[in-house]
Amino acid sequence: MSEAIKTDVLIIGAGPCGLFAVFELGLLDMKAHLIDILDKPGGQCAELYPEKPIYDIPGLPMVTGDGLTKALLEQIKPFGPVFHYQEMVQTIEKVGDPLFRVTTDQNKVFEAKVVVIAAGGGSFQPKRPPIPGIEAYEEKSVHYAVRKMDIFRGKRLLIAGGGDSALDWTLNLAPVASELTLLHRRDDFRAAPDSVNKMKALVAAGKINLAIGQVTSLDGAEGQVSAAVVKRNDGSVFSIACDAILPFFGLTMKLGPVADWGLTLKGDLIEVETASFETNVPGIFAIGDINTYPGKLKLILCGFHEGALMAQKAHRYVYPDKKLTFQYTTSSTSLQKKLGVS
């Protein structure tokens, strides 16, 4: 096991609420690391609606999901948050009073005095196509993400989807695979036009195949696919021989490991008290969409408020001997120093 990364506060989830928590913690001298399963910050704002407008962020009459994410990153920059992307937090273990050991699916280990769960609707996970028996092939010859391109060297690949992930991996893996087929349900791609043009050039040059249709079943044995059965839009069926399949149908939010952390849940949400948004385990807080309490609204602005109150209580765990005095960013030179503006 690798050596533990030590931090005052570990934030699980880099959505808007996790990001703003860095600010509130930072003002009170607490350093934070953030972990997210995505490869970028912003949570739902970045993954589900980067270009759509939000109208109810106080003081911002209109901002897009992407715009809000960028603004938050700018706002928390003075506090030097450390991001760990493409890692899913798997376990939280209490090892001190309070001290938590947190491990990810990539075997990274963290030690933090305070854990803030800002996991939103849960971890973003790839959508699994409803193909009968697909589970048996997963991790072996059906992959929802590419971690090492080399495992596809010399193989016959089938990539399914029409978005940026499908097109990017088609372009990247074309030189690696012995044969590559891109399968999409229509001859129209929402991916970036530049990638679409590059893909079409590869098809025209005979380097890759393009097929139109949807996979209905898989042939193979013991986790190894040999072919995908594909239905065309007119209902006719054909088969594509392949050694590996990469389906890219976007992401969906699944609660994931949050359910196993020994916290009191109500449905898929973590119960918290409303003075500090602490869970039933002292030192573990939950803010944003993942928590619930009487009157809870799943709004970004509520998550911001929760982060501010959480930081007050977190301070007691990180600095048990220091007293907190309430200060405004407008008038406190000490806060302004931390923000780098004074």
């Binding site: 409803p130 989807g161 349900r185 229509r186 839009n233 149908f249």
Partner: peptide, 13 residues
């Protein structure tokens, strides 16, 4: 909506 339907399964006419 057509773009978003790409994320659906067993999409039909």
């Amino acid at each position: 909506e057509e773009d978003m339907l790409d994320f659906g399964f067993d999409v039909r006419p």
